[in-house]
Design a protein around this nucleic acid. Structure first.
Length: 260
DNA sequence: ATGCCTTAAAGGTTAAGA
């Protein structure tokens, strides 16, 4: 089973690319971020025609997440718990039944960027991560396969950037952010690509300054897996080719191949 | 990079992104 995450940077502009990619790879479950659309305007029929069940958590203009699934949803939850005042659409969770009938969970997240760090955006990011840690700790008690997939806006290690010095200090790559990412790992969530392939692979290249041409990328899109999911993880592919196409997103799909 | 592009949504520009 292929479970994927992709920050598409606007469904309206990216629809042809997403459609092409779904037809090419037919992943069972896809978490999309930055749909930049309200639920009513999300082109769900396009995906339903391809056999996907569609659940969205959108908002006007910015953010917004969705899950596309060839499997029926047993349950859907929207919004990261822990702050009723948070109106940003950055979290959606789906529960599915595997081949053996046992449930597994996939959450799609768009973790706040947090820049600039001297503005409220940074404490918002840290608070969001604290809530994600709390939520993850609760879910892990279920001892189910759990995959939290998404744009984490976190560079885990120096190998995940073309330049440690250029990025260190940025909200994506500094102590306060990384200590929370490590807290997720300490709970038992495993970085899928590092565990399965352990290779350098960027998932984002800026639109500006020839970042793609110069391969100035960073790895910020992750498949974090509970022990039960990691046991069934066979490989992780980063679909780098999608960045070189006609109207690309600045992120590329990250796809996990699981044995369930 | 003091945003060097690209997006959405507005509205003849602005805010946001990482």
């Amino acid at each position: 089973m292929q479970i994927a995450t992709w920050n598409i940077n606007g469904i309206k502009a990216r629809l042809p690319e997403v459609e092409y990619w779904l037809k090419e790879y037919k992943p069972e479950i896809v978490c999309l971020q930055e749909i930049k659309s309200i639920d009513e305007n999300f082109p769900r029929e396009v995906f339903e025609d391809l056999g996907y069940n569609v659940e969205t958590h959108g908002q006007k203009s910015f953010n917004g997440v969705a899950i596309l699934s060839l499997l029926p949803f047993e349950e859907v939850n929207r919004g990261l718990p822990g702050d009723d005042a948070d109106e940003q659409a950055r979290f959606i969770e789906g529960v599915f039944n595997g081949e053996n009938g046992a449930p597994f969970r996939v959450a799609g997240i768009y973790l706040p960027n947090g820049n600039p760090v001297d503005t409220p955006k940074f404490p918002y990011k840290l608070g969001w991560m604290d809530r994600l840690i709390d939520w993850t700790a609760e879910r892990l008690k279920l001892e189910e396969p759990l995959i939290v997939a998404g744009d984490y806006n976190i560079i885990p290690e120096s190998i995940d950037t073309h330049s440690h010095d250029d990025w260190w200090g940025d909200a994506l790559y500094r102590e306060e952010s990384l200590e929370r990412f490590r807290a997720l790992q300490a709970l038992g969530m495993t970085d899928g690509l590092r565990a399965a392939n352990n290779e350098q692979a960027y998932t984002f290249w800026d639109f500006q300054a020839g970042a793609w041409r110069r391969n100035n990328g960073i790895r910020i899109d992750h498949l974090m897996c509970s022990a039960q999911a990691t046991d069934m993880l066979e490989s992780v592919e980063v679909h780098k080719d999608m960045r070189g196409r006609e109207k690309p997103s600045d992120h590329v799909p990250v796809v996990g191949n699981f044995s369930f």
